[in-house]
Amino acid sequence: MRPIDVLVPELFANEGGIQVYSRTLIRALLQLRPHTPLRVFINNDCPRHLPTSGWEGVEWHPAGGSTWQLAASLLRAARRRRPQLLLSTHANYAPLQWLHHRLSGSPSWCSAHGIEVWTLQPGPRRWALGRLQLLLPVSRFTASALRRKFSVRCPPLAVLPNCFDAQRFHPGPPSPALLQRYGLRPGQPVVFSLTRLSTGDRAKHLNRLIRAMVELRSEIPDVVLLIGGEGDDRPHLKTLVHDLGLDGCVLLPGQISPSELADHYRMARVFALPSEKEGFGIVFLEALGCGCAVLAGNRDGSRDPLADGRFGLLVDPDQSLAVPLRQLLTSEGEPLWFVPEALSQAVGQQFAFPAFCERLSSVLADVVPGTMPWDPLTSSC
Rank of each mutant, 00 (worst) to 15 (best):
D5M: 00
L11I: 13
F12K: 10
E15W: 13
G17F: 04
I18D: 01
V20Y: 03
S22W: 03
R23N: 05
R23A: 00
L29G: 14
Q31P: 01
Q31N: 06
L32A: 03
P34S: 10
H35G: 08
L38N: 09
I42Q: 06
N43S: 10
R48V: 13
H49C: 10
T52V: 02
S53N: 08
P62Y: 02
P62A: 11
G64W: 11
A71E: 07
A72Q: 09
R76A: 13
R82V: 15
R82I: 14
T89R: 02
L96H: 02
Q97R: 00
W98R: 15
W98N: 01
H101W: 15
W109D: 06
E116S: 15
Q121W: 02
R126Q: 10
W127Y: 13
W127L: 04
G130E: 01
Q133P: 07
L134N: 09
L136A: 03
P137H: 10
F141G: 02
F141A: 14
T142N: 08
A143E: 12
A145L: 06
A145D: 07
L146C: 11
L157E: 09
P161D: 08
D165V: 14
A166N: 04
H170N: 07
H170L: 09
A177S: 11
A177W: 05
G183F: 12
L184I: 15
P189C: 12
N207L: 01
A212E: 05
M213P: 14
V214I: 14
L216F: 10
D222W: 03
L226Q: 01
D232C: 10
H236W: 12
L244V: 09
P253S: 05
G254D: 11
S257E: 12
P258T: 15
S259F: 01
S259P: 13
Y265K: 07
Y265W: 05
R266D: 01
V270S: 07
V270Q: 02
F271S: 03
L273P: 05
G279M: 00
G281L: 01
G281P: 07
G289Q: 01
A296Y: 00
R299E: 06
D300Y: 08
G301A: 08
G301Q: 02
S302F: 04
S302K: 06
P305E: 01
F311C: 14
L325V: 13
R326D: 05
W337H: 10
F338S: 01
L343M: 09
Q345W: 05
Q345L: 14
A346S: 13
V347F: 02
Q350G: 10
A352R: 08
F353R: 12
P354C: 03
F356M: 01
S361Y: 04
D366Q: 13
V368W: 00
G370K: 00
S379M: 07
S379R: 08
